[in-house]
Design a protein around this nucleic acid. Sequence first.
DNA 1: AAGATTATCAACCGCCCGAGA
DNA 2: CTCTCGGGCGGTTGATAATCT
Length: 243
Amino acid sequence: MGRQPCCDKVGLKRGPWTIEEDHKLMNFILNNGIHCWRTVPKLAGLLRCGKSCRLRWINYLRPDLKRGAFNESEEDQIIQLHARLGNRWSKIASHFPGRTDNEIKNHWNTRIKKKLKLLGLDPVTHKPIEKAEKNDGDSSNKSNGDDQQQGIKLDDDEKLEGIELSLDETNDLFNSYQMLCESFDLDSWLNQDAANNTCSSSYSMEESSNKSSTGETNSTIGEDSLKQWVDSVDSFLSWDSFI
DNA sequence: AAGATTATCAACCGCCCGAGA
DNA sequence: CTCTCGGGCGGTTGATAATCT
């Protein structure tokens, strides 16, 4: 017996969100806040499931989102945190105000992984590939590195230190990584387009998210700041065109 | 210029976990 | 204690854009 689906998918819209749907969802959350995602689509007049609404809000509509390319220090920090936390993207994202777990996960999978491989480091273990392979061979009955990391059951962040990689070990690995980076100008090689990353979705929320980046959570974002943000983003989305 | 290939990222899927009945 | 439900998470997919041939 499988689990019941999160919602009745019959008649629900899927795929990319339209500007109108975004507007409806944002207006609803602005006016009512978030109490129960399951009821949000119905009350907001959307033919979406609650999960889809939640995802859209978290990954795209949230006022405190910081959009645009990751800078070098952010990337370095992601690598460091990944060495400690593994693929726990939400934990990693919690260290980056305005960044989403999805965004970090995508960045890791598309860019950082390649970068590490190019440097001869295993993106899973963060160790030199030859060494990592040897270790895998030594423990043929063990699951692969990914599974090992995912298999860690920890109660909280405090317990992370000393498990898998200690902070010292992590820093050692990270230092090695930095040394490798210095000897090879990867960034200019990989990020040739970073400087002129001007896609339409790179609208910066930084101004309106200054407050939130100091630790404010979604639920504590004041209505005023949310309204300010809606005002500021209105022109960006050209909502007037369909109202 | 056109087709093929690769990169990027938004969105979905399914599982897990905690809260509450 | 058990079951149900909703939220959250990580893995994966698919559409689109960018680049290459």
